[in-house]
């Protein structure tokens, strides 16, 4: 059930009002990648300044793949990102200011300081706030899609899409297995983006799975499998958009496996000394690679790329400046209840 990537199709980005040309899409793709990288870098600096509680988890090295996922989704779709999906989150519609606020634990953030960093989300736009337990978000996406089916909204050949991310580590969680099988049984319009970044925290592929390639599992679940080089931006766009297009047409769940390398530790606290120079030498940086390709092909100049970086840093600096002056949560003002029903004695059918 493996498919060959087709030629680059049109991608409807949330930000695009008109069908964009292939080159425009590739430039926008790089722009999301750079924005995500610059934002991750700035969060690391804020951590060094002791302005961020907890750790910082970056998507370094996974931007091309993640951004492709976010760009292939539309308003109304559902996206359950994971740890290394800064790029995909932004491309799907997350705002820079909410990233900064949430990492700083601000009262103004979507999680109001009650949760932070990568656990942020915005249910109003279908961006699910992940819990830390790997695989747990997949069945929730399935449930949202089933709800839409109950409501008669999953009809036609241009379906709403649910997308979830997972890694080579999370692929071995029981929750992932249950949920992917269930999504296949229900023939849901679902895409699983698997990022094989070679290492689950510090444990390499040879100690996490025994199959030849994670994409081989697709046929076992009854879903269509796709593979791509996660460091190749164009391959990511082509493969992910093909998988999403199949889902929209009603072909059922798709699984994409991208091969890449996590270019950082698990979190900022982790120097990742276990990643050998030899392993590093086998993988490039998707942003450097794509920048070079776009230059060689005459699509962007050095100055253009520098402008994209400058613009990203300027926007992030403005968000940081704004968030710095916003209030922290106040324990004295906090509404300390985990229940939405204020008085259970008043609940009545």
């Amino acid at each position: 059930m493996k498919s060959q990537p087709q030629k680059l199709p049109q991608i409807a980005s949330p930000k695009a009002s008109d069908p964009a040309s292939t080159n425009d899409i590739r430039v926008r793709h790089l722009t999301w990648m750079i924005l995500a990288r610059a934002l991750d870098d700035r969060m690391c600096k804020l951590k060094a300044q002791n302005l961020v509680p907890g750790s910082v988890f970056t998507g370094r090295g996974q931007e091309a793949y993640s951004a492709a996922g976010g760009m292939c989704l539309r308003p109304g779709d559902v996206f359950a990102p994971l740890i290394r999906d800064q790029a995909g989150r932004l491309a799907f519609g997350e705002t820079i200011i909410d990233v900064v606020r949430t990492c700083m634990g601000k009262r103004t953030s979507s999680m109001r300081g009650r949760d932070g960093n990568i656990h942020r989300g915005n249910l109003d736009i279908g961006l699910l706030p992940m819990i830390s337990h790997l695989g747990a978000m997949v069945s929730v996406v399935a449930g949202m899609l089933m709800a839409r089916r109950f409501k008669g909204q999953l009809v036609g050949n241009d379906l709403t899409v649910g997308m979830a991310s997972i890694g080579d580590g999370g692929m071995n969680a029981g929750a992932l297995h249950e949920a992917l099988n269930l999504a296949a049984v229900e023939k849901l319009p679902f895409v699983l983006l698997v990022a094989n970044n070679q290492v689950a925290y510090s444990t390499f592929n040879d100690r996490t799975f025994a199959c030849r390639d994670l994409v081989d599992r697709a046929v076992g679940y009854g879903v269509c499998g796709h593979s791509c080089d996660g460091t190749d931006a164009t391959a990511c766009l082509t493969t992910v958009s093909d998988a999403v297009a199949r889902v929209r047409r009603g072909e059922g769940p798709q699984m994409v496996v991208a091969t890449l390398l996590r270019l950082a530790g698990h979190g900022l606290h982790d120097p990742a000394e276990y990643v050998t120079p030899e392993l590093k030498s086998r993988f490039g940086d998707c942003i450097q690679l794509d920048s070079n390709t776009l230059k060689v092909q005459g699509i962007l100049t050095d100055a253009d790329i520098e402008r994209i970086w400058d613009d990203a840093r300027t926007r992030i600096a403005a968000a940081v400046e704004q968030a710095m002056h916003e209030p922290d949560p106040d324990p004295a003002q906090e509404d300390w209840t985990a229940y939405s029903e204020r008085d259970l004695k008043k609940v009545r059918s």
Binding site: S139, A147, L182
Partner: peptide, 10 residues
């Protein structure tokens, strides 16, 4: 586990 996740999503 997935049943509960489905319920939460729905």
């Amino acid at each position: 586990d997935a049943m509960a996740g489905v319920a939460i999503g729905a």
